[in-house]
């Protein structure tokens, strides 16, 4: 790592740590920013580097959210009783119970989606191009509807999450730190991963999968691992987001295919796909624009985002960093 690059990383990390202290009222929104970074980074593994455009990655976010909630509650209460009581018993978690539950829940929320991704990969990776996109979207929608109809996990009523013990402002700061840590860990992991054979292999699948097969590449294996990595970090993101929100339900919070599910794609395309920093820059710009439109264009915010996506896809396919790379290749050497 060059000196300049190290300094840039340090400056960004310092800004990330300082943000909730400088603007304490916005801590939750800042935490959402890190979740957006996770969305874009994980989507880019397949969408950018492997040429497989999944519209269903939100599945793992929702799965992680629900798995974490069920572990947290199930360790202390009978889940059916808890969900039937509509959260009326949630005040009884002790500090130790809460943090043990959360730690175990996040671990399960990371591993559960990996297993689901590995199992589903035998089915969905038989599809290519637009069929893969629609197939994965179908899986995510089905998961949302199944959860919605499943009373044991609260159905459409949702679940009131255990309440964070600790004083005012502590909950926000705790989850901000956790979201930032997860996003940074994901970034560092991908930074390492893209330095290995894995990156060239998934790039080869993107450029010509038949040729990759003809060379003997274990394409199925690479695709499965790529999706499982996305699932791992998205599961953690879902677990943290659910706890931060305090109340989860299937359609709007856990499996929002039309908002977060599309944002993932939009952010990556905006920043520049297939580049480590592209999704991060995309997340930052998209997040800022989203906050601005929600504040100043309320009622028109989705139209503004739609226009942004159309302009991006039609006139600016290379994304911000792709455009910059064409202009200033020496910065990317």
């Amino acid at each position: 790592m060059s000196r300049r690059s190290a300094l840039l990383h340090l400056a960004l990390a310092a800004a990330g740590i300082a943000a909730p202290f400088v603007f304490p009222a916005h801590t939750v929104q800042f935490a959402v920013f890190w979740v957006f970074v996770l969305f874009a980074l994980t989507w880019d593994i397949m969408g950018g580097h492997m040429g497989y455009n999944s519209l269903g990655n939100i599945l793992f976010f929702g799965l992680g959210m629900y798995i974490c909630a069920l572990v947290q509650i199930g360790l202390v209460y009978d889940i059916a009783e808890y969900t039937a009581a509509n959260g009326a018993v949630h005040i009884d978690f002790t500090d130790a119970q809460y943090f043990h539950g959360l730690a175990l829940g996040v671990a399960a929320a990371a591993l559960g989606p990996v297993l689901v991704a590995a199992a589903l990969s035998w089915i969905v990776f038989g599809l290519r191009g637009p069929y893969f996109a629609i197939g994965t979207l179908g899986v995510a929608i089905a998961a949302a509807e199944l959860t919605n109809a499943w009373d044991y996990v609260g159905g459409g009523q949702g679940i009131a999450m255990p309440v964070f013990p600790g004083g005012p402002g502590m909950r926000e700061r705790f989850f901000y730190a956790a979201c930032m840590a997860a996003a940074v860990a994901c970034y560092l992991f991908l930074r390492w991963l893209y330095g290995t054979r894995f990156r060239l292999a998934i790039n080869a699948i993107r450029d010509d999968e038949d040729k990759a097969e003809a060379l003997g590449l274990h394409t199925g294996r690479y695709k499965m691992v790529a999706w499982s990595i996305s699932a791992f970090f998205l599961g953690i993101a879902g677990a943290l987001f659910g706890n931060m929100t305090g109340f989860i339900e299937p359609l709007e919070t856990a499996y929002p295919t039309l908002t977060f599910g599309i944002f993932m794609v939009a952010m990556t395309l905006l920043g520049g796909k297939g580049m480590l920093w592209g999704p991060v820059v995309g997340a930052a710009v998209f997040y800022t624009l989203r906050e601005l439109t929600w504040t100043y264009l309320l009622g028109w915010q989705y139209i503004a985002l739609g226009v942004l996506i159309i302009v991006n896809v039609v006139y600016f396919q290379q994304g911000i960093l792709g455009w910059l790379r064409a202009r200033r290749p020496q910065w990317f050497a």
Partner: peptide, 15 residues
């Protein structure tokens, strides 16, 4: 059939 968005060395490495 080559990997068109990768450079020549990368094409060989992945082979």
């Amino acid at each position: 059939r080559i990997f068109s968005k990768m450079d020549c060395v990368q094409n060989l490495l992945v082979s």
